[in-house]
Design a protein around this nucleic acid. Sequence first.
DNA 1: AGTGAAATTCGTTTACA
DNA 2: TGTAAACGAATTTCACT
Lengths: 149, 149
Amino acid sequence: MKIDGIDKIIIKRLVKDARTPILSIAREVGISGAAIHQRLKKLEKSKLIDGYKMVINPRSLGYTTTAFVGIFLDSSSLYSSAIKRLKDIPEIVESHYTTGNYAVFIKILCKNNEDLMHLLNKDIQNIKGVSRTETFISLDQQISRQISI
Amino acid sequence: MKIDGIDKIIIKRLVKDARTPILSIAREVGISGAAIHQRLKKLEKSKLIDGYKMVINPRSLGYTTTAFVGIFLDSSSLYSSAIKRLKDIPEIVESHYTTGNYAVFIKILCKNNEDLMHLLNKDIQNIKGVSRTETFISLDQQISRQISI
DNA sequence: AGTGAAATTCGTTTACA
DNA sequence: TGTAAACGAATTTCACT
């Protein structure tokens, strides 16, 4: 799969705004809408494009706190059952099985510190196999982007 | 800002596929396209909607490794200059200033372990003020989602 | 908040360079 | 890969409820 300059323009425009009309991109690059359409279908088929998503602003819903939580498990065999429970906690937006100190590493959004404490002490600590957690609260996010193309 | 059931359907559909035609949503909920259009503009103005993004699949570009890196800084006064340097490393997709052990916490995508080592030992360790790093490599990601509405 | 209609703009297909 | 033409579909605006 080779990507040329036109493909890059298509991708850059749609990464910025996925609802940009194809014809508007066509006018920018100076080829027909049908050609852009064709290229886009090819990019989608190649799996380079994973989809198009509306982005929700968590802040507007009161979710002002981002935190990362490292979770220690008593045994790695408890991983899949723990994941099942973690999936039921909607504030958890990412979950990884990681090398290093922790077994499970999650990213979590909370409305405030009280909610975070509740999530840690009740929802997460009560999961079978969870022995201990370590929390890193994000005070400032300076980078948020996708891999560059 | 109050969100009713119709708004939720609009959001759910567009979170799943941002290029879903408004008229297709209109047909699903049984009101006119103009009404959906109106609601959508209102949601966008309310800042609940942060935008629409094409999602790139990093794997298709060879980025098969996700890692989290905690960075220790000699002094917190070096934060802003360090961030400037981190922004120049395209593999870094998130950067946070965090409470806890680390000063800076990043999420990074790499093609392989060699690239990761190079990024850690050359690009990151050479940044002024960086004393030490701790790396957690993601072996398995089970949750990847947005905050629920 | 919603409607229906009108005007404009898009997406998609097709036949052809 | 690309184009131009054609057509159905979608977006957007507006006067009215």
